[in-house]
Amino acid sequence: MEILRYVAFSTDPKGGNPAGVVLDATGAADTAMLATAAEVGYSETAFVVPSGDGALDVRYFSPLAEVPFCGHATIATAVAHAQRHGTGRLRLRTAAGPVTVTTDRAADGTLVATLVSVAPRTAPIEEADLAELLAVLGWSAGELDPALPPRAAFAGAWHPVIAAASRDRLADLDYDMAALGALMAHRDWTTVNLVWRESPTVFHARNPFPPGGVVEDPATGAAAAAFGGYLREFGLVSPPTTLTIHQGADMGRPSTITVTVPAELDTGIGVTGTAVEL
């Protein structure tokens, strides 16, 4: 397999979230894909198998396990594909469902990709799980933003949304990785989406990812899509609208994710970003 390495959601290789990309993994066994992802060492590696109907079958592996969907690896895959085959629209088949991705060139020549997620939804977080999650994070209920209630959000993978009342609270992240990983594995959560609202359409996020063997993800497209759906479902934004999510700054890898929230409740969420090859 030819392994490509990209940074997604940044035009600077020192920012964004690195992803591995294999544009043709035809015939590769699950064990080979997992071993490759572990060797690459990034939070996710995408493995693509072209099909006869023009769609692409895509699977995503962290160094420890397969995940149903990954936003930043999808953006990286789309840009890598566009560099070799030209821009346009791709149909992806993922474990989470069908995802479309469109690539184009910005005025400065930068390749930009926009994915449209599966239809998002949310679910309550049980009181005991929320108490355990906050305890593992070292956060208190009084440090949360009451305008953004805790909720598990989905747009291909599940992410609990926990909103901090202040930027300082979000900036101070120090948690028990083993304990959080155990809780997340029990509840099938992929990352924890910690957010702070700067303005009605600008947010800052951090995403612990212990199930993937990663302390923190610097840009999480799947969580951004799920968060867009969460905001729409609870009337916390006025769709159609465009959101900006800043992530990775606290770990020295600044990333920018653009989220497009359509008005229709049963439609997917758009996630836009750039990617550059390493």
Rank of each mutant, 00 (worst) to 15 (best):
P18F: 07
A25E: 07
D30Y: 12
T31K: 12
A29N: 09
R59E: 12
P63R: 09
D30E: 15
G27R: 10
P63H: 08
S43F: 04
V49P: 10
L23K: 05
D24P: 13
D57C: 03
G41N: 13
T11G: 03
P68W: 09
D12F: 01
F61E: 06
E66K: 12
G15K: 00
T11I: 04
F61T: 06
V58R: 14
A38G: 15
D53S: 11
G41R: 15
L34Y: 06
A73R: 04
C70M: 06
N17D: 03
P50K: 07
A19H: 02
P50A: 07
L23F: 02
K14Y: 07
L56Q: 09
T11V: 08
V21P: 14
P68I: 10
G27T: 07
G52V: 10
A25Y: 01
G27M: 12
T74C: 08
L64Q: 15
M33Q: 12
Y60G: 04
A25L: 00
S43D: 05
E39A: 15
T26P: 10
V48Y: 07
A25T: 00
D53N: 11
L56C: 11
A19K: 02
A65K: 07
L34P: 08
S43M: 05
G16H: 02
A55L: 10
A65D: 08
V58I: 15
M33H: 12
A38F: 11
E66A: 14
V49S: 07
L64I: 09
T74Q: 09
G15W: 00
L23C: 01
A35R: 14
L23Y: 03
D12W: 05
D12H: 00
T74D: 03
V49E: 13
G41K: 15
T26K: 11
G15I: 02
D57V: 12
A25R: 06
P18W: 00
A38K: 15
V67H: 01
P63K: 09
A73G: 04
F61D: 05
D30R: 14
V58A: 11
I75V: 15
E44A: 13
G52E: 12
F61A: 06
V21L: 08
G20F: 05
T11R: 10
D30P: 13
F47T: 06
A76M: 09
E39C: 14
L56K: 04
Y60W: 05
G20S: 05
F69Q: 00
D57N: 14
S51H: 11
P13D: 00
N17T: 01
V40G: 06
V21S: 05
L56P: 10
A76N: 01
Y42N: 02
I75A: 08
V67K: 02
L56F: 11
Y60P: 10
M33R: 15
L23T: 03
A76G: 13
G15F: 01
G16Q: 02
D12V: 00
A19F: 09
V58H: 11
R59G: 13
A73F: 07
D53I: 09
A19M: 07
A32P: 10
